[in-house]
Design a protein around this nucleic acid. Sequence first.
DNA 1: ATACTATGTAAGGAAAGCCTAACAATGATA
DNA 2: TATCATTGTTAGGCTTTCCTTACATAGTAT
Lengths: 136, 136
Amino acid sequence: MITSGLEDYIELIYNNISKGKDIKAIDIANKFNISRASVSEALIRLADKNLIIYEGRKGIKITDEGIVEAKKIIKKHNILTVFFNEILGANFDFANKNACKIEHVIDSELIDKINEFTVFCKENLIDKKFLKDNDD
Amino acid sequence: MITSGLEDYIELIYNNISKGKDIKAIDIANKFNISRASVSEALIRLADKNLIIYEGRKGIKITDEGIVEAKKIIKKHNILTVFFNEILGANFDFANKNACKIEHVIDSELIDKINEFTVFCKENLIDKKFLKDNDD
DNA sequence: ATACTATGTAAGGAAAGCCTAACAATGATA
DNA sequence: TATCATTGTTAGGCTTTCCTTACATAGTAT
């Protein structure tokens, strides 16, 4: 098991690497507003858990295991964001912010149900527009 | 701000007191599977924050402030449980278990939206039964 | 009353996750 | 090349939340 802090970091690492951008410790520090020292420790913990390969200045690489972890979290993140934003009508940033927290505690099976339900709603509630205050 | 552990404890305390049952430190220890010593510390922290009045063996009382806190959490808990169970069709225990975790991180405004949406679904989706595998 | 059981507290410790300050090493630039 | 800025590491600390062990007190029952 991985803590929610580490989940955030591996998620960010994967998101960058999968886009071909390389990511440095300092980027993580900036993104989450924590010190470089804390990131240094966190990266060591992630490497201990075989989710990344970390060799300081040589850069951060993600392992296959790390990719699997990251994808799980990103899947949760995306499904929650879409549900909050497109179905509940919450504004995008707010939906995203809540997804960022819930993704660390919600079970996968429930996420699947939310996803199925989102699809269902899109097919069945087109006419009955639930919320109108969706500002994006 | 209060941590999710403390939120769990104040929630349990309120749930008991509001039913006229008194609650002891050991009940909390048993419920959450933590040591009596840890509960002892947690109750001191709750008292420091003016959410309870704690005088050891004399019992645990909840303050007005504590009641407000507890009700916020219980509201989130109930809305989430109903949504997961009655709308998504998750079984009750599973719905409850997830609500227990999400209640500590979700924003109130999003909870309100989920609640409105739950009401809306109950009024509009009666015919279109979304999920059938709801086992309770 | 004595002894047993239940409950709460105190002391000491561990891990996670954060911090600052000081230092080291790399890279860019004058 | 010498200097300065960027980035990463180390050391030492702090808080929270949990633990175990040992002890203290209260309540129950013989």
